[in-house]
Design a protein around this nucleic acid. Structure first.
Lengths: 235, 235
DNA sequence: CGATCAGTTGACAATACTCAAATACTGTGG
DNA sequence: CCACAGTATTTGAGTATTGTCAACTGATCG
């Protein structure tokens, strides 16, 4: 029994050390970290936190997939992030507002590592490398948001869609073939539009010979054309 | 002569220590900081950096006003931030991308404090309080961007305008009377629209008895109504 | 196997952008 | 200090992208 726990702890330490946030941290700190960490399970569709909830700590995705989103009074949703294994989320509440600025739900059955605020802040204060990793993470996220604002304000739906398809094709290594990693409804919400419009735009791109659609599987036929679309933002 | 320089340095140290980023830092570190800092002047409309430029450091506004923005190929502009005295900008490039994700120009004749990347990173690594201040700053900015994405995606122009007017009236202490702190063209760009639309929406709010407009000076007549608009996002 | 949900398509409405023109401002040089 | 040039702001008319509502199909899940 003791053994099992030690094993579990050991593997958690190892896992934490492979995380982008904690990569390269000394064993000693990883031990401390794993000491204050709690692993929690969430079922598909379960709420992890809601906008305005007090942020007493933040999370790392261990297994599964998490969606961070906002919602308007009349129910329209805008996805901010989709996070997968290794990704941290909710740090903002730890360092600034004390309360979460958006909602989080599990998209699949997930296991998360929860790190409580106060203990974690102490660890950051004692560990410059960790602080710099955190600064890098937040900075990257700021860049992502910059691009999202750019897309929402300066591009139209076809442009955003084209940019997303190119992003997926770069991320996945399968050449001109790619998988939408989200249901089309969720993708619409990520791109700041609605399912009907997304559906029409996908058909349009196919009709104009830029892509071929087979369910969630897309083949890029005219990459040039997509790049043009993504840059200019219109037809 | 030596005296003058000492005076200058001393006042820079003092000024840095009053900045939100460096508040509460020990004298010793402030001295170091002021040692690596350079004060630079920019004339109104001068470019400070452009998207993609290598980020060899970041800036603090000492005097003046700076606009951070993106621009689409066909010339439409989206303002991300307006920064004034005491505000830092360009940190993102220091900690993540190494290159600036947006453009920066001086809106007025300005004096900026430039802090070079490498020296500054060393200082952060040696100074946990500074690291935590930076984390708080970046986290707050992330929250602001979250709100901006929310506004762009989930609210229509009248809603964004109403939210901005309420924000100004909270920031300025003058009760129901407020000043737009930007030209209407610039405000349009901040709200993700164009001058024509902004002009029409201001008239509309006035026509419906929510505000009274006198140039750049606005009086809120029906605060309730504005709040409703800002929350729901539509008419 | 029925029910709920995801996706698609059509007809329509509306918000916001484009283009154009008139008017009011601002700042600069003479 | 005024005249002029270049901006900023406002208003009008028309267009377009995208959202709304509704109906229908097909998939998924108890």
């Amino acid at each position: 029994m003791v053994n099992m726990i030690e094993n579990r702890d050991k593997s958690l330490v190892k896992w934490l050390g492979d995380t982008s946030l904690f990569v390269g941290m000394e064993e000693q700190y990883l031990q401390e970290l794993s000491g204050i960490a709690m692993v929690v399970s969430y079922k598909r569709r379960a709420t992890i936190f809601s906008e305005g909830d007090p942020g007493n700590g933040f999370y790392l995705v261990k297994e599964g997939k998490v969606k961070i989103y906002m919602i308007s009074p009349d129910g329209k949703e805008q996805i901010l992030h989709i996070f997968g294994p290794g990704d941290p989320f909710g740090e903002v509440a730890v360092f600034a507002s004390q309360s979460f600025p958006a909602h989080a739900v599990a998209l699949e059955n997930s296991r998360l590592v929860f790190l409580p605020r106060d203990d974690f802040v102490k660890l950051v204060a004692a560990n410059p490398a960790l602080a710099l990793n955190l600064l890098a993470t937040l900075s990257q996220r700021l860049c992502q948001f910059t691009k999202m604002i750019d897309a929402l304000s300066l591009k139209e739906v076809p442009g955003r869609l084209a940019a997303h398809l190119l992003y997926l094709s770069k991320k996945q290594v399968t050449g001109d073939h790619l998988q939408l990693e989200l249901s089309k409804t969720q993708l619409a919400s990520l791109l700041g539009t609605i399912p009907e419009t997304l559906s029409r735009m996908l058909s349009k791109l196919q009709r104009e010979g830029l892509i071929v659609i087979e369910g969630a599987s897309i083949t890029i036929v005219d990459r040039e054309g997509l790049v043009d679309l993504a840059e200019i933002g219109k037809f």
